[in-house]
C-alpha cells in the first residue's frame, strides 16, 4: 500500500501525461483538498474522468487531519482560481465552506464552485440548505444510505418488531441517525431501543460498558442490533461485533468497517470508489455541462452494496433469504 502522498503524486502526473493538449483552452483545473490523504474515494473521482476520457488538471493539497492549515489553503484557492474545488470529509468541508447561512467571506471559500465527497448529513451539518436545493454553489454526495433505505434493507433480510441501537451520545451525527431511525420505526409500528454508551468521568465513552449494553438489548427482546456511523463504535468494532454474536444478536451497519473488517452480520454500504465516481459525475455536470452547483441536488448512490458475512450468519443460524443472495456481496 503506497503512501497517500505518493499516490496523489502519481495521480496528477499520470493525468498530466495522459491529458492531450486541447486545441481550444486548457483542461479544467480542480483543486482537491484532502483530509487524511488520498484514498479510494479520490481514486474513484480521478478514474471517472479517465474512463470518460476527459482531461482534467488535478491539484492536490492534504491537510493531514490538521484543520489549522485550512485558512492558508483557502487563500491559495482564491489566488489560483481553479474551476472547481473538491473537498473530502465532513469536518474538512465544514471548515472550508462554513455554514450555508452563516458564511464568512474572509475565512471561508466563496465564489468558486465546490463539490464535497464522503460527507455525512450535509443538511444537519448545515453545509447545504437542503439536499434538493443546496442554497449555495456547492453540491456533492452522501455516502451513507438514507436511513429509510437501511431500514428496508434490514427488513429484507429478516422482518423485525424491535431494534436496539447503541451509539456514542457525544457524536452528533450518530445521535441524529439513531433519532431518525426511531421515527421511521415508529411509523412502521416497530420499536427502537436506544442504548447510549455511558460516558466516563473524563468525558469519553466507556468501551467496557459495551457487553452490558448488548445484554440489555437482548433482554429487551431486540431482534436486530443497528450500528450507526459512529467513530467510537468503529474503534471498538471487534469487541462490539463479537459480543453481539455471543448474545445471538444479528448486527446491521451502514459502514463496511463493521462487516468486512469485523464480525458484523450485514451492512448496506457504499463503495468509496463508487461514491467518488458519483462526485466526479456531478463535477462533470458543472465543468462541461455548465450547470450551477446550486441546481444539482446532493444525492446518495441509487444502488448500494449489501454485504453479508457468511461466517457470522452460520454462527448465528441466521441465513439470508435467497432473493437477497442474488444482489448481496458475501464477505
Amino acid at each position: 500500500m503506497m503512501p497517500a502522498s505518493r499516490r496523489a503524486l502519481l495521480a496528477t502526473a499520470g493525468l498530466g501525461l495522459a491529458a492531450p493538449a486541447l486545441a481550444t483552452g486548457r483542461p479544467p483545473r480542480i483543486l482537491m483538498i484532502l483530509f487524511r490523504g488520498w484514498e479510494e474515494a479520490c481514486d474513484g473521482f480521478r478514474d471517472y474522468f479517465a474512463a470518460r476520457r476527459m482531461p482534467v488538471d488535478l491539484v492536490v493539497r492534504d491537510v493531514a487531519q490538521d484543520l489549522s492549515r485550512v485558512p492558508a489553503l483557502v487563500r491559495e484557492a482564491r489566488t489560483m482560481r481553479p474551476d472547481l474545488v473538491y473537498l473530502w470529509g465532513t469536518t474538512l468541508t465544514m471548515a472550508v465552506l462554513g455554514p450555508w447561512d452563516a458564511h464568512d467571506p474572509d475565512r471561508h471559500l466563496s465564489g468558486i464552485p465546490a463539490v464535497f465527497n464522503i460527507v455525512t448529513d450535509p443538511v444537519g451539518n448545515r453545509i447545504v440548505r437542503s439536499r434538493a436545493a443546496p442554497g449555495r454553489p456547492v453540491t456533492g454526495t452522501e455516502y451513507i444510505a438514507p436511513v429509510a433505505v437501511q431500514v428496508e434493507a434490514i427488513a429484507a433480510y429478516r422482518p423485525f418488531r424491535r431494534i436496539a441501537a447503541p451509539f456514542n451520545p457525544l457524536e452528533q451525527n450518530s445521535a441524529r441517525v439513531v433519532e431518525e431511525m426511531g421515527q421511521l420505526l415508529a411509523a412502521r409500528g416497530a420499536a427502537l431501543q436506544k442504548l447510549p454508551v455511558p460516558v466516563r468521568a473524563d468525558g469519553r465513552p466507556d468501551p467496557s460498558a459495551i457487553p452490558a449494553l448488548l445484554r440489555e438489548a437482548r433482554a429487551g427482546g431486540a431482534e436486530w442490533l443497528y450500528i450507526p456511523p459512529d467513530t467510537f463504535l468503529n474503534d471498538h468494532r471487534a469487541l462490539l461485533t463479537q459480543t453481539a454474536i455471543a448474545e445471538g444478536l444479528p448486527t446491521f451497519s451502514a459502514s463496511e468497517r463493521f462487516v468486512a473488517f469485523a464480525d458484523g452480520l450485514a451492512g448496506l454500504v457504499s463503495r468509496y470508489t463508487s461514491v467518488g465516481a458519483f462526485t466526479a459525475f456531478k463535477a462533470e455536470q458543472i465543468l462541461t455541462g455548465g450547470r450551477d452547483p446550486g441546481s444539482i441536488p446532493v444525492e446518495t448512490l441509487t444502488r448500494f452494496s449489501y454485504q453479508i458475512r457468511m461466517e457470522t450468519a452460520r454462527l448465528l443460524g441466521a441465513y439470508p433469504p435467497v432473493g437477497l443472495l442474488r444482489i448481496a456481496e458475501p464477505v
Binding site: 429478516r158 457468511m310 450468519a313 452460520r314 443460524g317 441465513y319 439470508p320 433469504p321 435467497v322 432473493g323 437477497l324 443472495l325 442474488r326 458475501p330
Partner: peptide, 19 residues
C-alpha cells in the same frame, strides 16, 4: 444462481430462507 451461491457458502438446504 443464488441458490447455488447459498449451497457453495455452506447454507444447509432446509435452512435456506425465503425461497
Amino acid at each position: 444462481a443464488p441458490i447455488e451461491t447459498a449451497i457453495s457458502l455452506g447454507v444447509p438446504l432446509d435452512a435456506l430462507p425465503g425461497v
